[in-house]
């Protein structure tokens, strides 16, 4: 465990709290892509299936996995029930079939092992790298977003971006490599880069998130 990984995991936790806080205070899920949220739930469930047999290996990992699956399911529950009237499916129109299909193909072609658990793990890594696309697409369609929504997206993106120095550190210090996670993590960070740039130039300077 190193500083980058801890910072990345904390960033992920923060993103969850920011999202739930946004929905509770504004009593709405305006600006949040339901499709991205569903993709994240699929990501966490397929990746953390190993809770069933590695639960005792690391209390930290197991606790985080439970938090990620639980909060993701809870977010979807809120979007389907309490805040359903504020969800507008007409602006959440990204075709997720391609993301799921592409991730499934990559997972089947290059898993570390051809076992169900490893293929699902690999699938979840690829799917996570693109799961934000419906959300970014929605931002692009609306052209602006509430500041708190952009904080959420930033924290979620920072999580995988911070894993990149973590993988570099582990490569040099522990000779540890995880090529699937590293390549997918870099793709994920690239997808966020435009958003990071606008977030940095606008939101951090106290202005509203608005696309140029």
């Amino acid at each position: 465990m190193n500083l980058f990984r801890i910072a990345g995991d904390l960033s992920h936790l923060i993103s969850i709290f920011v999202l739930l806080h946004k929905m509770r205070t504004s009593k709405s899920c305006i600006g949040i892509s339901f499709k991205s949220q569903v993709l994240y739930l699929v990501v966490y469930v397929t990746r953390y299936l190993d809770l069933l047999w590695t639960f005792q290996h690391s209390a930290y990992n197991s606790l985080m996995k439970i938090i990620f699956i639980g909060s993701s399911a809870y977010t979807i529950y809120l979007m389907l029930n309490d805040f359903k009237p504020t969800h507008d499916p007409n602006i959440d129109t990204f075709k997720v079939e391609y993301l799921i299909g592409g991730s499934a193909i990559l997972a089947l072609l290059f898993p570390y092992k051809w076992t169900t658990a490893e293929v699902l793990w690999s699938f979840s890594i690829w799917l996570e790298s693109v799961a934000i696309l419906p959300q970014l697409f929605m931002l692009q369609r609306t052209g602006e977003a509430e500041t708190i929504t952009t904080h959420y997206i930033f924290a979620l993106g920072a999580y995988r971006a911070l894993y990149i120095p973590n993988w570099l550190y582990r490569y040099f210090m522990e000779s540890y490599t995880d090529p699937i996670a590293t390549v997918a993590g870099i793709i994920q960070t690239i997808l966020y880069s435009d958003f990071f740039y606008i977030y940095y130039t606008k939101v951090l300077k106290g202005r509203k998130f608005e696309l140029p």
Binding site: R5, D50, Y163
Partner: peptide, 10 residues
């Protein structure tokens, strides 16, 4: 060491 048997990251 390379990759461990179980994934130790999140």
């Amino acid at each position: 060491k390379g990759r461990p048997e179980t994934h130790d990251e999140l």
